[in-house]
Design a protein around this nucleic acid. Structure first.
Length: 596
RNA sequence: GACUUGGUAGCUCAGCUGGAUAGAGCAUCAGCCUUCUAAGCUGAGGGUCAUUGGUUCGAAUCCAAUCCAGGUCACCA
């Protein structure tokens, strides 16, 4: 149990016995004591003043006295300043905590709770390569899944691939018309990039054709409909739905190129999935549900035969769920897939990592599922994250301002190589070790950069800032880990552990205590990150821990500590810091090097 | 226009279930490598927490209004 929890319980019990009244945790607040005051944790007394009709100082004195008397193993002294009760925790409490947990690589992680969750993320389109926005999605989804696992939940990572539809046909047509049978092999191009290039080509040609038709006096609408390349694309979509062999053949071939490209990228960035859904398999799902919905009168049919749901009573509008020609729309298959996920995996919660541009869509989806009486409709959770913008503004594929994922990854790794070579600290590494180190640092920097911001918020991607490896960055934290490991290697050799001892006579120094207090808060950080589905909590925590440790490190020597007891204490402190840094970084998909 | 999210230092972000003098990083300036890795540490300057009003012992935090910015409001996905 955390020190704050213990303090909470202690205060509640003390209040009850002192004043014969029952209180709840909401009646007072517990904060960490500000550095300018003496003490470790502070109880804010103001809110008790009214109910107890006593001055803050009187309450503070009685409460402080009671706590120090009843919990001598936890609290050693107290002081009251302007209505704040500052409590000092005993050195023994901190030292015992350290002694018990310093070697535990699972510190803070929870036992299985039995809760089963699916996290759907990534969800690429097969007509273009991954970009910066996908990276935020991938890192976020992966990390949230790991954070849930660390909190005792069973997690299934899933991905839905948007591999069909008009946009896919666009790149297919453009390839057919202009590629001269170019393949990834023949052009030495990554498959997803090759296909993406023809998607761009489509748009260029389409724009030209529309302009030409408009020059001939057509209206914009007419020109957009009549552009030959668009007509061909629409025909191709019809052919695809009819399963025309040549079209299917081309579709399969081009998709296989894209998947090969995606696999390379996913492997590089460390994304993986337990279950992959393909829209080409799921797009017909939900049709029978539409029928059931009609029978239940959740849906209604318009004169033209299209099927709708009326959500005006819920403050939304009418939504179509099936076109008049009987084909399904986007949301129809989503309903079907939502149900299938529950049926296949018997999950308690279904998390969708999708951009906030789809807030409305997801709201509608959940509402429809509820109205259909689907089990667990309440437990559909949209983890809505903000867009990534550039310093110059929004990314727009049409204007070529999209930051390509592969290029960015390569650049980050190249930067880490350059910097590592300049510093020249690992000259004895083999070529293989070096390559691995560059990956660890480059990818670590990138993941940390994208995960350190609250996912809900729109964030700005600044290229220069992203390749800065100082300050609030992944490499800073990795570096702290590497330095600790270096000391542990030197002082303990291989595998040997520091002697455990409880016999500390000299008091904890402020910086020693500051580090241990931070270490103690890791489990709480994990809980908060889980509740909020927010990896930035971990990023901030781990950064602050590293910072605190670095201050301690510059001020006090571990190897040449004043006494042998101090040395062991500091070795434990360093070891636990390294363990937690490693654990926290792992939850963000970031590896930490032994040396750098 | 309706709904929704945001506005904190020059820039990027924490803090938001109300609490002590609003914090980091970057950038700027001044220091620290004969002692465990300087991708580090110490210090300085830099704020009308968008604006106005309200709630109260106390507001960046809660409420209301206003201004500004993003997103959505498709028989696209």
């Amino acid at each position: 149990m955390s020190i704050v929890n213990q303090l909470q319980i202690g205060v509640l019990k003390s209040l009850a016995s002192l004043y014969e009244q029952t209180f709840s945790e909401k009646d007072f607040q517990i904060n960490q004591t500000k550095p300018e005051f003496e003490g470790d944790y502070t109880v804010v007394l103001f809110s008790l003043v009214k109910t107890l009709r006593l001055s803050p100082d009187a309450i503070g004195n009685q409460l402080g006295e009671k706590l120090v008397t009843d919990y001598p193993e936890i609290f050693t002294s107290f002081n009251i300043i302007k209505g704040f009760l500052n409590l000092t925790v005993t050195d023994n409490y901190w030292i015992t905590l350290l002694n018990k947990n310093y070697a535990d690589s699972c510190f803070g992680k929870k036992a299985l709770t039995g809760k089963k969750v699916m996290v759907e993320y990534s969800s690429p389109n097969t007509n273009k390569p991954l970009h910066l926005g996908h990276l935020r999605n991938n890192f976020l989804g992966w990390s949230v899944a790991e954070i849930l696992k660390a909190n005792g939940q069973e997690v299934i990572k899933s991905c839905i691939v948007n591999d069909r539809g008009i946009h896919i046909c666009k790149s297919m047509i453009a390839w057919q018309w202009y590629a001269n049978d170019a393949t990834p092999q023949s052009t030495n191009t990554k498959g997803d990039h090759l296909v993406g290039a023809y998607y761009v080509k489509f748009n260029d040609v389409y724009k030209e054709q529309v302009a030409a038709l408009m020059a001939d006096g057509k209206t914009k609408e007419a020109a957009e409909k009549e552009a030959p390349i668009m007509k061909a694309t629409q025909q191709m979509l019809v052919d695809w739905e009819e399963g025309k062999p040549e079209v299917m053949e081309l579709w399969k071939t081009m998709n296989s190129w894209v998947y090969a490209g995606f696999d390379t990228t996913y492997q590089k960035i460390g994304s993986d999935f337990d279950k992959t859904y393909y829209e080409s398999n799921t797009y017909l799902l939900g049709k029978d549900i539409v029928q059931q919905g009609l029978d239940k009168k959740v849906f209604f049919k318009k004169e033209d035969g299209s099927i709708w749901i009326d959500l005006t009573a819920d403050g939304l509008d009418e939504k179509i769920v099936q076109r008049k020609d009987g084909t399904s729309v986007y949301i129809t298959q989503d309903i079907g897939l939502a149900l299938q996920k529950y049926e296949q995996f018997n999950i308690d919660q279904s998390i969708y990592v999708i951009g906030n541009e789809q807030n409305y869509h997801m709201k509608v989806l959940q509402l429809i599922c509820k109205k259909l009486g689907m089990p667990n409709a309440e437990n559909i959770f949209h983890l809505s994250y903000g867009m990534v913008e550039l310093t110059s503004g929004k990314m727009k594929s049409r204007e070529g301002t999209v930051v390509d994922a592969d290029e960015l990854v390569d650049e980050m790794i190249a930067t880490s190589q350059k910097l590592t070579e300049e510093l020249g600290k690992v000259k004895d590494f083999t070529a293989e070790e070096l390559k691995d180190l560059y990956d660890i640092i480059g990818l670590g920097a990138m993941k940390f950069y994208l995960l350190r911001v609250d996912p809900k918020k729109t964030m700005v991607f600044n290229p220069e800032e992203s390749i800065d490896f100082h300050g609030f960055t992944g490499p800073f934290v990795q570096y702290t880990h590497a330095r600790i490991k270096s000391i542990l290697r030197k002082e303990l050799g291989n595998g040997e552990s520091s002697n455990s001892t409880n016999e500390f006579k000299s008091p904890l120094l402020p910086l020693e205590k500051a580090v241990i207090i931070q270490l103690e808060q890791y489990p709480t950080a994990l809980e908060v990150a889980c509740e909020e589905h927010n990896p930035s909590v971990i990023a901030n925590y781990v950064f602050n821990l590293a910072k605190t440790f670095n201050s301690f490190y510059t001020e006090h020597s571990i190897g040449n500590a004043e006494t042998i007891e101090k040395k062991y204490l500091r070795l434990q402190l360093a070891a636990m810091t390294a363990n937690i840094i490693k654990s926290g970084m792992q939850l963000m998909g970031i590896r930490v090097p032994e040396r750098m």
